[in-house]
Simulated scan of single mutants.
Amino acid sequence: MIIVAAPSGAGKSSFVERLTKENDRLVDIVTFTTRNIRKGETNGLQYHFINHDEFQKKISDNFFVEWAKVHTNFYGTSYESIENAWKQGKTAIMDIDIQGVLTFKSKYPDAKTIFIVPPSIDELRRRIEKRDGGVPADIEVRMANAEKELREADKFDYQIVNDNFDHSFAQFKKIVEELLG
């Protein structure tokens, strides 16, 4: 299991999505969320989009390995998705919030962790605003969370600064391929 975390907008989803297209030994674990779908997203591809009531029921049913409230929405990873990857003989790779990493490591201590670091807080803000088509309502919450998350980077097995996507992705790919053996 490979877990990728980063502040919102640092590039973790882009890295995981690209690598899983290039390497068929990996399965991108699609998490559940209560956030609204963004332009260009497809339900079941980037996330499983569900409402708050459905999410709460899944919590009650012990459906999630981990779940957390991130910014203003809930995110969670199902046991079933990980078990399905392993049944296929594949390595589960996922991009999750830093809160979920601690839970995963407690349940799966052999999991490897990679933290994607933005080149600066200002660049991170610019990326979020560009991606979301303007200043999101929760931008200050995201930026405050990003500063807290960046202080946790040294607790990860690997850190990559995403200052140039192609160069940083090459580093990411090399690390994952070494982990796969």
Rank of each mutant, 00 (worst) to 15 (best):
G40R: 00
D110H: 11
A111P: 00
A111L: 10
V117S: 00
V161M: 01
D95S: 15
K130H: 09
G100E: 14
N23Y: 02
S120H: 12
R38L: 13
R38D: 01
G133E: 07
R38M: 12
I160V: 09
S81C: 08
I98G: 06
M94E: 03
I114H: 07
K155I: 10
E66D: 13
F49R: 07
G76R: 07
K130M: 12
E123L: 12
R125N: 04
P118Q: 12
F64D: 05
E140D: 15
F165W: 03
E123G: 04
K107F: 10
I29P: 13
I96L: 15
R35I: 03
S78A: 14
V161E: 01
K90C: 06
L102V: 06
D132N: 11
F49L: 09
I50L: 10
N36M: 09
E149K: 02
E83Y: 11
A153E: 04
Q56C: 06
L150S: 05
Y108K: 07
E80V: 02
H52F: 12
W67R: 04
D97H: 11
N43F: 08
T34D: 01
A111K: 12
R131K: 09
F165D: 01
A153T: 01
E41Q: 12
G89R: 05
D97C: 09
Y79R: 02
T33A: 02
F165G: 06
N23M: 03
F156H: 10
V101D: 05
N36T: 05
T72E: 14
Y79S: 02
E140M: 06
I128Q: 07
M94F: 08
D53R: 15
R142A: 05
N73L: 03
T113V: 13
T113L: 10
K21W: 00
T91A: 11
M94G: 11
E83L: 12
